[in-house]
Amino acid sequence: MPTARTGPSFLWLLAGGVPVVVVLAVLPPFIGVYQTQQLTYGLAFAIAALGFNLLLGYTGLLSFGHSAYFGAGAYAVAFIIQRLHVHSLELCILGAMLGAMLVSALFGYACVRHTRIFFGILTLALSQVLYSLALKFFWVTGGTDGLRASWNGLTLLGGLIDFKGSGAYRRFVVSYYYYVLGLFVVAVLIMWVIVHSPFGKALQAIRDNETRAGFVGIRVRRYRWIAFIISGLFTGLAGALWVPLNGLTTPEVLYWPFSGEIVFMTVLGGFRTFFGPIIGAVTFNYLKVYAVASSQYWQLVLGTVLVVLVMLLPAGIVGTLGQLANKLRPKQLQQG
């Protein structure tokens, strides 16, 4: 058994994170509108994967139904914009997170009664309830057409920024990028605090040994439920941020293969690390965009990547880099 890693300190996070955020912040003028947009997608997915990994990496529960919370957030935003004619994105996000919280609290209450494969199947079955409802109740959800959520009616920061007049699209892409980046940073900080708090440590104890965690006095089921809700909230936020960018939400984000993609991102980056899901989500987005652009058989490409990844690099990108670093370190010490 590997010993539990206590993880780097908060100062370390600042030292490593601030330069990355600065680089991300100065990037848009250099990479153009299209790449800025892709990076925004990547950051939104990163929030989803971050939330998902609280369950997989820190609580040891593999959910195959996170499309439900992403979709709940996405549909809530589209619904609020279209039916309630709200323009402030903050209000939309608030509504979306409320929606995602309700759904994840309800689903989570049922799901945390099980672990391992039953947990996976239960989350999948519940997410498909939402999918089939979105598909069939077309007068509410638009059926397979989905709901449109146009960017040009939106205002950011309580009406400070709106998108009217010439060059509006370009302005939207750039300011929306900073908006998502800001929320991403907040999400990372909150998640960092959560996983390093006593609550986060309790989750890891449950992951490593459920029975012992119970004996220590941790209320296993309650803690799992709270973790489930937090996880759903993050994923719901990601769904909410994704909609204005995509301009449209369709039942596909509720369909279970999308849950599989969230799992894919997380494992690609490495689910035993804090930053793995973030790197994985951004990488996955680029991988998918280029696979779709270069071949109509993009699923073949992505599927092969996943198979090779699981066979050869099970620790994911960040996990493998960490292992390499650990291997190099003792050598340097010996030489010195």
């Binding site: 293969p257 894919f264 058989y297 699923q299 992505l302 599927g303 996943l306 198979v307 990844l309």
Partner: peptide
């Protein structure tokens, strides 16, 4: 067991496109 689940998911994507191909 997560890894087996994942590899079968990868296989699902591959087969989907192999059928189309």
């Amino acid at each position: 067991e997560e890894y087996i689940l994942l590899i079968t998911f990868g296989l699902l994507m591959v087969l989907e496109d192999v059928i189309r191909l």
